[in-house]
C-alpha cells in the first residue's frame, strides 16, 4: 500500500513537474512567500521582495502573473505608501482589464488618503 501511494505520488510529482515547465506565467516564490507571511505576519518584507522579484522576472519574460501587481500595490497601500500603491494598481489594470472595477475603487481610496495627507 505504502509503495503504491509513494509511486502514485512520484507520478504526480512528474506530472506537476511537466505542468510547471509549461507555465503561462512567472510566479517566482509568490506561493511560498505568501505562505511564510501567513505563518509569520512580521515577515512581510520577504513577501514584498518575493513579489518584486516575481514581477521583475515576469516583466523580462513578458508573462507577469495575474494579481501580482495588485498584491504588491495593496501591501504598499496598507503601509501608507500611496504613490507606490497607485503605480502598481495602474500596472495591474493595464495588463488585466478584468481588474478595472476593483482597481478603480482602490485608486480612488488612495487618492482620497493622499489629498488628506497633503492637507496636513
Amino acid at each position: 500500500m505504502k509503495k503504491k501511494s509513494f509511486l502514485l505520488l512520484l507520478g504526480v510529482f512528474f506530472l506537476t513537474g511537466c505542468a510547471t515547465n509549461n507555465s503561462l506565467y512567472s510566479w517566482g516564490n509568490y506561493e511560498s512567500a505568501l505562505y511564510k507571511y501567513y505563518k509569520k505576519p512580521d515577515s512581510i518584507e520577504g513577501y514584498i521582495q518575493a513579489l518584486e522579484k516575481a514581477i521583475l522576472k515576469g516583466e523580462s519574460n513578458s508573462n507577469v502573473a495575474p494579481g501580482l501587481y495588485a498584491e504588491l500595490g495593496y501591501i504598499y497601500l496598507e503601509q501608507g505608501d500611496m504613490a507606490k500603491a497607485q503605480e502598481y494598481f495602474l500596472k495591474e489594470k493595464s495588463v488585466w482589464p478584468e481588474s478595472t472595477y476593483i482597481i478603480d475603487k482602490l485608486i480612488a481610496s488612495t487618492s482620497s488618503s493622499t489629498s488628506e495627507g497633503e492637507d496636513k
Binding site: S23, L34, A65, P66, G67, L68, Y74, E92, W96, E98
Partner: peptide, 14 residues
C-alpha cells in the same frame, strides 16, 4: 496559481 494557469484572471487572493 493553478486556476490562473488554466487561463483565467484570478483576483489577487490576499
Amino acid at each position: 496559481k493553478p486556476l490562473a494557469e488554466r487561463g483565467y484572471y484570478v483576483f489577487p487572493v490576499h
